[in-house]
């Protein structure tokens, strides 16, 4: 994905777009680590929605933000116990 908004050709991304992208990433981390509460709320909401489709192990559920140098992903691990027949 062209996250730096590079124009056609081999132009270097402007230092401003590099700054903006780095800032965006750093703030995802900052904001997430400042509010574990946010992840906890998200987890509860997820459980609510999913449990109307299948039986899940609420205690075994984990919701985390996983990050590497260039991206941040929301990872949810939700053990399924039983799927309801439709």
């Amino acid at each position: 994905m062209d996250i730096f908004g590079k124009a056609a050709g081999k132009q270097e991304p402007s230092s401003k777009s590099i700054a903006k992208e780095r800032l965006r990433l750093v703030l995802v981390h900052d904001r997430a680590s400042i509010s574990p509460q946010l992840l906890e709320n998200l987890k509860e909401d997820l459980l609510k929605v999913i449990s109307s489709y299948m039986e899940i192990d609420e205690l075994g559920t984990e919701v985390t933000l996983n990050s590497n140098e260039s991206s941040v992903a929301l990872i949810a691990s939700i053990p399924v116990i039983k799927i309801n027949r439709i």
Binding site: S15, K20, R24
Partner: peptide, 16 residues
């Protein structure tokens, strides 16, 4: 510097 693309502009900052 904003014009040259070497400084974040007002929109960038407000956006963030």
């Amino acid at each position: 510097m904003v014009k040259k693309g070497d400084m974040m502009d007002i929109d960038d900052i407000i956006d963030i």
